[in-house]
């Protein structure tokens, strides 16, 4: 079967079984290996991507439901030599250690930042509660997201 959708702004078309997981389509059919598999059952959040702006576990989404949507992955954020504000905040605060949870964590954080809600510590912690990290104790991740939230607020005090 054929499915058409957008990945990081680019239109793609894949010819795959409809029950193939979005995760496998990204990693194997589209060679976008930035999205990681940690458990395959929606517990760890390492495969988090944005589906029409909402954070989802790509291991739980069949590709038949992605048809016509827009997907955003870590590859759609800043490049290595041009990190975006959130990635830079992670780098500066020490929010990434082993790095395997990082792409999913960044996507959950992007969804949170885009939601425009309050960026107090409790709200940030709730926003990333579906993303397990075993290295950091979460503190530096929370700091990084708070820092990025502050920067975005300063840059655009009245988001649309």
């Amino acid at each position: 079967m054929s499915f058409r959708f957008f990945v990081n702004g680019d239109p793609v078309e894949v010819e795959v079984p409809g029950m193939r997981r979005l995760l496998d389509v990204l990693r194997e059919d589209l060679a976008l290996t930035g999205t990681k598999e940690g458990c395959g059952e929606g517990e760890c959040g390492a495969c988090s991507v944005l589906l029409d702006g909402a954070v989802v576990d790509a291991c739980l989404v069949p590709i038949c439901q992605v048809d016509g949507t827009s997907i955003r992955t870590v590859e759609g954020l800043g490049a290595e030599n041009k990190l975006n504000d959130l990635q830079s905040a992670f780098l500066e605060t020490g929010g990434a250690q082993c790095g395997i949870c990082t792409p999913g964590m960044l996507m959950a954080a992007e969804a949170f930042l885009a939601s425009g809600g309050p960026s107090d510590e409790d709200s940030i912690r709730e926003a990333i509660a579906g993303n397990l990290c075993r290295c950091t104790g979460y503190r530096k991740i929370v700091e990084a997201i708070a820092q990025a939230a502050e920067q975005r607020r300063a840059a655009d005090p009245h988001p649309a």
Binding site: G42, V55, V56, L60, A108, A127, A129, G130
Partner: peptide, 9 residues
């Protein structure tokens, strides 16, 4: 139930 990812789906 779950967290944001599960609640969205």
């Amino acid at each position: 139930i779950g967290a944001a990812q599960i609640q969205n789906r």
